[in-house]
Design a protein around this nucleic acid. Structure first.
Lengths: 137, 137
DNA sequence: CTTTTTGCAAACCCTTTGCAAGACA
DNA sequence: TGTCTTGCAAAGGGTTTGCAAAAAG
């Protein structure tokens, strides 16, 4: 079952790589649709799912709200802005197997992996907050 | 706007504390409904939301699937079983402010917190897997 | 008496799925 | 040809919301 090289797959993969930062499936869909109006939303969702299942791209699952996709497939952490919802990379060293082993010992589970995700306020929204305060005060 | 002490609130809070391990809102609803059939599902969802917003209880947001609630409100980590979906505590030392500061430096965000969550296979499902293998082989 | 909370149903968001038609290998 | 993929629309899971009635303070 090797994946077929369909036109749509190439377009979607391409759009993801062209889009700046961790778009949602819907954002990819909108971008794709701008140039290829006939592509369906389900195709975008399915293709992004396949690409991430194959390890071609990354999927950042967001607590509340839509998943974001990452054209970089290697393992790294992410932050999400509480104000605007944008997602960015956090390039800090990975925690490594040590935490997984500690978690296994503490829980009795066989640990397969972990997710570390940060919540915060992005630079742009920090600026916006300052302006809000200034105009409110 | 202090929360009002409604009968329902007490019942729901109580049900959560009585239920063994990190139930979902729906599981709380089913438990509550068994004894108080007139309580609506929306009330359970709203009340759990209020309780967790107030810090009375914890909310474990699960990537894919329903959130789980935790009668313990202090900060700690969780594992989720990939096979059966159950959620358990992982009592290992918290990562502390160090990672948050590193993430802030690496991303430019003001970091408000992080979520560390493990994926694995719970003890019961490990046993089940062994039985599967034995009967398949 | 004022304001929050309830119960119900409908709405909501994001994602997946059934199906027939079309594209790939 | 045989099978995977597409496009559409509809369904799905989980949670929230609008509303009038009931309850709390």
């Amino acid at each position: 079952m090797p994946a077929r090289n369909t036109v749509q797959r190439a377009i979607i993969d391409d759009a993801l790589r062209r889009l700046a930062n961790h778009p949602t499936a819907d954002e990819v869909y909108e971008a794709v649709r701008a140039e290829h109006p006939s592509i369906g939303k389900a195709t975008v969702y399915r293709t992004l799912k396949r690409l991430s299942d194959e390890g071609e791209i990354g999927r950042v699952r967001i607590n509340n709200g839509a998943d974001h996709f990452d054209h970089q497939s290697f393992s790294h952490y992410h932050v999400r802005c509480e104000r605007c919802g944008r997602v960015d990379d956090v390039m800090i060293p990975l925690l490594g197997e040590g935490v997984n082993e500690a978690a296994a010992k503490a829980s009795g589970y066989r640990i397969l992996g972990h997710v570390l995700q940060f919540d915060g306020v992005c630079p742009a929204c920090q600026t916006a907050e300052k302006n809000d305060e200034a105009s409110t005060a």
